[in-house]
């Protein structure tokens, strides 16, 4: 589906932030991902028109970075860290539990489109290992049991907006660093919630 005028206006605002149009490519891809859950061909065409590069150049960037999804994700994207710190702190079991609960292998989405599961490299929360992300909202210090509870909560409550702090309170443990700033904005899609790009949502 091509972009509506509201989305195009938002895209133009983002382009304004950069000295060169093509520099806005990254954020625009997130915008596309927020809209469709992945980077679809129509969005690629729209973006290429907006910033004046060819479609294949947009696709090249979109397919290089794993956080730009090439296939539709479920409502909740579960990213579990498998890098060294988390591994030492038993991420294996967290991963196994989530896999068992959702019935998904790496990079799979369930039929109901509720969950997409992926194992990822370091998400920068080593101090609070093991860590998981739900739609890129980080929860640290998760235990295998808490991970299961988290999945159940998502499946049963189906929250519209995912806010990191909220999930941290319910399911998290040790945090790597407490910024002591209450952050109430989260994300309602499988794109990371950036206020400046406009992909974040107030709870």
């Amino acid at each position: 589906m091509s972009w509506d005028s509201k989305l195009i206006d938002r895209a133009k605002e983002i382009i304004e932030l950069y000295p060169q149009k093509r520099s806005a490519l990254g954020p625009l891809l997130y915008l596309a991902q927020e809209k469709e859950g992945y980077i679809d061909d129509d969005s690629v065409v729209e973006i290429s028109k907006l910033i004046g590069i060819t479609e294949v150049q947009v696709r090249s960037v979109a397919s290089f970075y794993t956080m730009y999804k090439q296939e539709p994700s479920g409502k909740y994207l579960l990213s579990v860290c498998k890098s060294i710190s988390c591994e030492i702190n038993n991420s294996k079991e967290v991963i196994d539990n989530i896999k068992e609960f959702t019935g998904l292998a790496n990079n799979e989405t369930d039929i109901e489109s509720t969950f997409t599961f992926e194992e990822v490299e370091c998400i920068g929360a080593c101090g609070g290992a093991p860590a998981v992300q739900i739609n890129y909202e980080t929860v640290e210090g998760v235990t295998p049991t808490k991970a299961l509870e988290l999945c159940k909560y998502l499946k049963e409550e189906v929250p519209e907006v995912i806010v990191a702090d909220e999930l941290q309170d319910k399911f998290g443990g040790t945090k790597s660093f407490d910024w002591a700033i209450e952050d109430n904005s989260g994300t309602s899609s499988t794109a990371p919630g950036f206020q400046i790009i406009g992909t974040s949502e107030e709870k």
């Binding site: 061909d41 690629v44 060819t54 479609e55 294949v56 150049q57 696709r59 090249s60 397919s63 290089f64 970075y65 794993t66």
Partner: peptide, 16 residues
């Protein structure tokens, strides 16, 4: 009109 698509072991040259 041709570019690298994908990354790592999956990298290929292709068109849109």
């Amino acid at each position: 009109l041709i570019e690298f698509i994908q990354r790592g072991n999956k990298t290929e040259v292709n068109t849109f």
